[in-house]
Design a protein around this nucleic acid. Structure first.
Lengths: 266, 266
DNA sequence: TTGGTACATTGATGCAGATCAAATCTGCAT
DNA sequence: ATGCAGATTTGATCTGCATCAATGTACCAA
């Protein structure tokens, strides 16, 4: 669609607030290349991956990246900002399926039947990389590390969804919210942001919907957690004061990905 | 591990009760090759896939195929019988994550970190094909259709898990059980069995656990559905009397896979 | 047969969290 | 500033389903 303009920028690894100015950077220069699709792909091959990727102009808050039913052509990697994905029931009811942070891939559920079963919408100003799927498929047949990374990411998505089933299937409201916050905290940390202080880009309603709770319940729990000095809430801003205790509240078993990269058999 | 004995057998396409006598058949001769990993792979290449697959001797009811924490080496395709997968919480609590029918792949969630996050256990006498993952990876780099099918299957798994999140997140007990039965019915049909009459290989407790309900609730709902002439239950045997109405009860949106093979863009 | 064990059904009761309702608060557009 | 729409908080009430409890039933081994 667009041409593929690439502007070099110095990498930033520091912990700081999301700045959305850096729009176009090659994978090789992207801060996210250690947690995104390029993981493990070497410098030479990175160029090939880079050449099939299209960096689109940012989405405004509320814009749709794609909608339920749209034809599937590409995966998208979030570069900055955040998205939510959601299903719409026949009666118009919305079910939030997930929140996407920078470095995460959207649209994996659309490969099977070549259309998007969910809609994806920006929660704030958000930029994404478009990755045409047919190109990705042929490229990954040539690059074993890329193929492996793609399978890894899909596997991880399955694992995370299973984790969500546990949360929805047998956790109390309190445990659900605690698990949610711990999970978010881990994901922020992984991306070089503070694990103890962050902004929620989604509403209470979205959180409740995602966790299978009424938004009133979410609100009440936030105030309860605050009264118990677990955290401080100010509107969208969250500061975790006692991550350990919050983790305990979550009924444990929600490290999400305790061992991000390091793994290998046995 | 084992050698790889292959015995030719005539294919059977008829609707009939699961017979577990046929233990070893090449993919090319397997009734399941239209719904299993080989989908789309042509006769020549099928031999290559076949050669990496190891058909193991059947598991007895209650046997584990693998346990939570085991090293990941292989995926498994169910050939006959059925499995359940489940997570175990620190406190020993069990959460059933899914039930596997013939032609379905187990272990996809283990690719990411090279160990199994779940345990898998046979619900009845069950035989599986073992597919060493490293072999599968190299083979699929050579066979585009195989690579594509693997991605499709993983994508479908993600889609199905998302469907489960909707069920657990916002459906009533009645809707959950109805959705569960419709889903099972569809899967049996796809495999050439009657969609209106089947045996549940799992207990009420497993169903309840899977659906986030108490087993008593499941039991009560079965009797209620029976009183409303939606179905007939006799112990493990289920006969659906009004699939349409049951579908309505499920709060719709649970066809699971309306369009099994046919797809392609637009 | 008998006994035992695991599974299933059915009834009675209680509670976590939904729902309803209303009062703020926030951010944005004019 | 002013006003409005949507988001959030907080309170009061209601209910679906869990939990507790007891009985019934199938299956298996001796």
């Amino acid at each position: 669609m667009n041409p593929n303009p690439v502007i070099d920028m110095p990498t930033r690894k520091s912990e700081k607030v999301v700045s959305l100015k850096d729009i176009k950077v090659a994978c090789g220069e992207c801060t996210l290349n250690e947690i995104c699709l390029p993981v493990g792909v070497d410098a030479t091959d990175l160029g090939k991956l880079d050449s099939i990727i299209d960096r689109k102009r940012p989405l405004a808050r509320g814009d749709h990246l794609f909608r339920n039913g749209d034809a599937f052509r590409s995966l998208y990697a979030v570069r900055s900002g955040s998205l939510k994905t959601y299903a719409t029931s026949p009666d118009g009811q919305e079910q939030v399926m997930g929140f996407l942070l920078p470095g995460e891939l959207v649209g994996l559920d659309a490969i099977a039947d070549s259309y998007h079963p969910l809609s994806a919408r920006a929660l704030e100003t958000t930029s994404v990389c478009e990755i045409p799927f047919s190109d990705l498929e042929s490229l990954s047949a040539q690059l074993p590390t890329l193929q492996h990374q793609l399978l890894r990411i899909m596997s991880q998505e399955i694992r995370d969804d299973e984790h969500n089933m546990v949360v929805l299937g047998q956790k109390s409201a309190e445990e659900r919210l605690a698990a949610f916050l711990i999970g978010l905290s881990n994901r922020f940390q992984r991306r070089g942001f503070s694990p103890n202080q962050f902004n929620l880009s989604m509403s209470r309603g979205d959180i409740g919907n995602y966790l299978g709770l009424a938004l009133e319940t979410v609100s009440r729990l936030f105030t309860r957690f605050q009264n118990e000095n677990l955290l401080r809430v100010d509107r969208k801003h969250i500061e975790l004061l006692d991550r350990q205790r919050l983790y305990t509240y979550s009924g444990s078993q929600c490290s999400e990905q305790k061992d991000p990269q390091e793994s290998s058999g046995r």
